[in-house]
Amino acid sequence: MHPFQYQRAESGDQAVAVVAKNPDAAFIAGGTSQVDLLKEGVHQPSLLVDVAGLPLRQITDFEGGVRIGANATNTEAAYYPAIQARYPAVSEALLAGASVQIRNMATMAGNPLQRTRCPYFRDLDQPCNKRTPGSGCAAIGGYNHVHALFGASAACVATHPSDLAVALSALDARVQTTGPRGSRTIAFPDLHRLPGTTPHLDTVLEHGELITSIDLPAFAGRSHYLKVRERASYAYALASCAVALEMDGAKIKRARIALGGVAHKPWRATPAEALLAGQQPTEKLFQAAAAAAFADAKPLEHNAYKIPMGRNLLVRALLETSGLQPLQGPAGTAFAASVGGMAGQVATPN
């Protein structure tokens, strides 16, 4: 770990001011991602500003939706009754991610800011444009099993690893920030960037811009998250998807779909969303939507499996969200989200 100075933030404004004026400064809150990357030497800040003590932990009802303080832990948000009941995709994504210990530590602002699991990003002896701009991309032509199908560039084919971000994207959450240029609201689907020629920038946040809350807008529909992983628990998604459906009687009024594990950001499947709007839900329709969602997928050498996997996953998510098929476990839990379920004979709890 490179040496750094440590400072406890006195206030949000003070933290922003301190980080903004030092290009090598960074925020730290839950630490689950930051400390890992400090140990790997991927992050080498000279100053860490600890914002964990800032009063940003409240979760409150807000404009018919829910405002989640940046420092609320993943556990607190996942079990918050209004979230579990009205935004089950959020709870499902949180509870199907990481482990109890990590969820107890990780904050809601920190989770979507975690960085890619591309193995080359973490290996300082390999080129990586995201870690060291201009050094090249080792994943292209290398081992690209977990890499992107959509929106990749010649500079970077990494995927974003957060489960939560996929659910927040599908729900069109809003991110409130305060930064050197004042406060602003960012629509969640706009928070993360595509790599382009500057893959070292994961998000549109400016240096020194601090997330203060994540707002879930009022939503009367159903939402659901599904995740496939190589280990039954405590593993990153190979592919995932979040679906938010608003119904008008028997017809779909509006569908929002975000795909995880397939792009540098949660990938909104807009062609599929368009295809579903105004339609009666059927398996056939959903298959068509899934085909549309993946029509433009561009596989690399080792990740083509994600195309059938992602399509099948989306069909199932739509079937389960629309009620054409039962959930695999109680809504708002890891069991609803975990494709394949746990090992053992015992059925998932209901």
Binding site: R117, P119, Y120, R122, D123, G142, Y143, E230, R231, A232, S233, Y234, A235, Y236, M342, A343, G344, Q345
Partner: peptide
């Protein structure tokens, strides 16, 4: 390219029948 316990999956309790 696999050199940590997040990418090298040893069975967890959820994998054990």
């Amino acid at each position: 390219v696999v050199r940590n316990l997040a990418d090298y999956h040893v069975p967890s309790m959820a994998d054990t029948p």
